[in-house]
Design a protein around this nucleic acid. Sequence first.
RNA 1: GGUGAAGUGGGUGAGUGGCUGAAACCACCGGUUUGCUAAACCGGCGUACUCUUAACGGGGUACCGCGGGUUCGAAUCCCGCCUUCACCGCCA
Length: 426
Amino acid sequence: MLEISYIRENRERVLEGLKVRNFSEEELEIVEKVIALDDKRKTLQTDLDNKLAERNSISKSIGDLFKQGKKDEANAMRQQVNDLKDTAGQIEEDLKATKATLAETLVQLPNIPHPSVPAGNTDEDNEIAKDWPGALPELGEDAKPHWELATQYNVFDLELGVKIAGSGFPVFRGKGARLVRALIAFFLDEAARAGYEEVIPPLLVNESTAYGTGQLPDKEGQMYHAEKDDLYLIPTAEVPVTNIYRDVIIKDESDFPIKLTGHTPCFRREAGSYGAHVRGLNRVHQFDKVEIVRIEHPDRSYEALDEMVKHVEGLLEKLELPYRILRLCGGDLGFTSALTYDFEVFSAAQKRWLEVSSVSNFETFQTNRLKLRYKTEQGNRLAHTLNGSALALARIIASLMENNQTPEGIRIPKALQSYTGFDLID
RNA sequence: GGUGAAGUGGGUGAGUGGCUGAAACCACCGGUUUGCUAAACCGGCGUACUCUUAACGGGGUACCGCGGGUUCGAAUCCCGCCUUCACCGCCA
């Protein structure tokens, strides 16, 4: 959520930013609406405070009078306070309503894109920040998509998942299951080497947590909801891990950077997504992912973003997968993000690029909701949050299977072999 | 799941209707003293909103788990919820 003070002081930049996100003239009016609501809120707040101050002072006098034994005078003043309470009560109701409307409106405003974010509507307008330098692998006509290889080599079974849960819940088996475990361990080890502290967070979160990182209210339909206990299944480790720092005031600027990593399964409803492009592991309801999360000083968050990009690149290189990096355009940028790099891996049998990582700087958009601040001489300021997938497993497995298929079986990249204990799935 | 107890500032913890934004101690920061360190002494030390000021600052309001209520006045009384602890039950 954007800070009101920021909107007030940078109205033009906010409007420009929303245009990059393809807001129409009409939609842009929300900015004026927010400011008007905030004006009203301030006036009401001041009114209310004045009434309460008056009440407090009269109440104090009443107490003094009672002590002095001047009962009649004291009782006479009671009516004054009662009248005051009535007006104060009305103002308070009005204030509450205004605050609620303001909050509802403010929540509709997405983050302001970083100046480097290209304009555009769809994923076709994303900018290629780094292309794959060499030729893309060519497998020939008899190459199989990963879902066919899965059956051939018993890597995972989607139909079995349907029986147990429903569509989009793969059951990994044998060497496939072992490959999942190997990738998780590999990614976590790499993150640890890069200085990230490993955490194992809850997989179900409450409403405040889902709100803190911006999944609520914007993406409610994306999450599974356990209604009886009012808990949400996490769509990414970002949610519980970043919320570790909800309502925290970091004592000293030298405590930055805070670097956390965690592996979790991720649950996504992906309602209504069916068809050829979501076959196999391309889009599933449950997948494993290792996430890296950083809490940074505002002056250094973009440096941190670059570091995270490098980290993810390193992983893909060790996995020997052809990849490219996209800078998302305004239309494709997530609601909460100021700048996002997507990583795509080329899956040679499908001849498609598959998104396997998304690395974003949220600046203060999340920390404003999280109330995540750090102390400075001039008072408390909002920190910056960032996160990135490092990496999401399902699609990595899809492209590993496709790109590394040989007549003998599926070849395991060197970097993984010490984790899998085998170099071929056959 | 049942029964009982408790939730106060970074921590321990006092406070049962007005003099309490909240004692005291610890931690932390600044200073004095001091070969160094330590000790001792002095001072400072919550958050949010708001008004005012060029700024330093100053004023006001709210916050003692959360939400409601009683009262002229609530950390303190009442109701609901949440959490924690103890015991019992169940259990990977």
